[in-house]
Write a protein that binds this DNA or RNA. Sequence first.
DNA 1: ACCTTTCTCTACCATTTGGTAGAGAATTGT
DNA 2: ACAATTCTCTACCAAATGGTAGAGAAAGGT
Lengths: 213, 213
Amino acid sequence: MARQTRQAILEVAGNLFGHRGFDAVSLDQIAAEVGVAKQTVLYWFSTKDELVQEVLAETAVELTVVVEAAIRSASDDPLDRMEAVIKAVFRPAVRRPSLLGLVREISRLPTESSERLTDSLRPLIERSMNWMKTEMEAGRLRRADPGLIVALAYATVTGIATEPEALRVVGWNADIAGLRRLRDELVDFLRAALAPHGEVGVDQRAVLRRRRE
Amino acid sequence: MARQTRQAILEVAGNLFGHRGFDAVSLDQIAAEVGVAKQTVLYWFSTKDELVQEVLAETAVELTVVVEAAIRSASDDPLDRMEAVIKAVFRPAVRRPSLLGLVREISRLPTESSERLTDSLRPLIERSMNWMKTEMEAGRLRRADPGLIVALAYATVTGIATEPEALRVVGWNADIAGLRRLRDELVDFLRAALAPHGEVGVDQRAVLRRRRE
DNA sequence: ACCTTTCTCTACCATTTGGTAGAGAATTGT
DNA sequence: ACAATTCTCTACCAAATGGTAGAGAAAGGT
């Protein structure tokens, strides 16, 4: 059973789609990169659209699992919890830069296709929004529109993860130290953006710890 | 002289490129939308690549002019100045959603092409970074890596402006009231993210003013 | 009036696109 | 051992792609 061919196609297609966009990637390119004939791709996924759908579905599951696990394992403090989610997403996003690029591609799909994906993510998003609302009312997060805050945090994370060009222009390097610095600044940035007024969103001990290194 | 044809092509091409991506838009589509034959497009821009370059160059100039004007007209306070820039960029970005989408597309270009554009934006970015560094040292902005802060703010603004899908999922509406709410939340978000610790980054009077409405 | 330049067009072309038809290996269950 | 199923292939196809060649209309300068 060469089901691994199917998996290899999904992986390669995901990377290419996330990097260049759906329309810009041809079945020939995918097949060439996997090392099979185009018709093998069309055997496993009978149209290109079906391949796109399956890649997206897989991505949605992967992200959901990662995020849910991070939420469960984190403490009750909302800022700590958010930090855990960011770090959990950051790891696979860096290892496979196309992951969040794929999510960003959704806005280019026909409405029916994009809705299938957003529907599968909706429970997670609704939960985040309700949770944020509760925390805001309890004074543990800055008071704001929960929906827009979720969208803004999402935009910041995916934006920074999908645009290495922008980072290079400001003199950032993609080495291991650079990645850690980026992740830490991202966390501090969002902590500050979400912390209740007057409180210090950034974990000062962590900042000092980093400075010492 | 029908130089306006050239301008119409640039505008249509900019919108389509920003919305769908360079590779996904054909010369035929552009020509059809402008209302001319494909060969008219190729008369004004002898290759597709040349068209892409000119669209990008125009975009860079437009953004630079808008940002510079906003910087000059704003007060000295760094958070006010940042707010002015965001509002200045927000207006054209909303009127023409592809504007920032185009900038985001750069990461998909071959290095030589993308460098031509980033080079033309570099002076603006360098200035922003230096200015942020000064303000941070003076305690008027949260102390952090100036380059990464610029990149994070950029990621937040372009991310939110180019992904209406993400906003729709959190229940946002693209009407006039929605646009103002989005802009205001974006400004509050970045104010909070950049304000020095302990200080209140959000203009409380503005918040109250909005709540009253 | 006439020539030149500017501008847009129709008619092609080679290549690439997503997709079909169907043959021939490998693998499987019995 | 044999038949059925699973898997990958070569050989095509119509449509769309970026681009060429060159004709003809419009407009300007003299």
